[in-house]
């Protein structure tokens, strides 16, 4: 008998996934900033990403949850550009939070090298800040 578990993590697990993501995203952002010192973030990517990437899902009950299915395409797009297993672990965690029938958008990465670095830095920053907010919401801070 193949008893695959339910496909949805329980609320307690969602909180743990958010904490693990928070830990990984912080490390990834720090590593990238060290590696790419002097690369400024881009305000227009920021604005565009912020509008496209609402940080929360709209569920009312706790725990608050990150909008996994809109961040996922961005991480899949930048993964080949970053030689870092942390990115794949973030993708694995986001897959756990993805709603079963969620559609996935395609993301194109800037071809210009400098623009590409600014794009990556903006995503990592937005993601890290989003997790900080979700985590503090969940811990009632």
């Amino acid at each position: 008998s193949h008893m695959a578990p339910t496909n949805q993590p329980q609320p307690e697990d969602i909180g743990a996934i958010i904490t693990e993501l928070w830990n990984s995203s912080k490390k990834l952002l720090e590593d990238y900033q060290k590696k790419e010192t002097g690369v400024p973030e881009s305000t227009d990517y920021s604005l565009r990403i912020q509008t496209l990437l609402p940080c929360f899902t709209s569920d009312s009950q706790p725990p608050s949850n990150i909008n996994s299915s809109t961040f996922l395409p961005y991480f899949k797009a930048i993964k080949p550009l970053l030689n870092n297993s942390e990115v794949q672990e973030i993708i694995e965690q986001l897959d756990k939070l993805k709603l079963q029938n969620a559609s996935e958008t395609e993301v194109s990465v800037p071809t210009d090298t400098f623009e590409c670095k600014r794009f990556i830095l903006t995503i990592l920053r937005q993601f890290s800040e989003c997790l900080e907010r979700v985590k503090s919401l969940n811990s009632g801070a």
């Binding site: 578990p5 794949q88 694995e92």
Partner: peptide, 14 residues
């Protein structure tokens, strides 16, 4: 092995 082993999770093994 990593990166497909992340916590929390529920596995089945046969």
């Amino acid at each position: 092995y990593p990166p497909t082993i992340t916590i929390p999770d529920i596995y089945t093994i046969q």
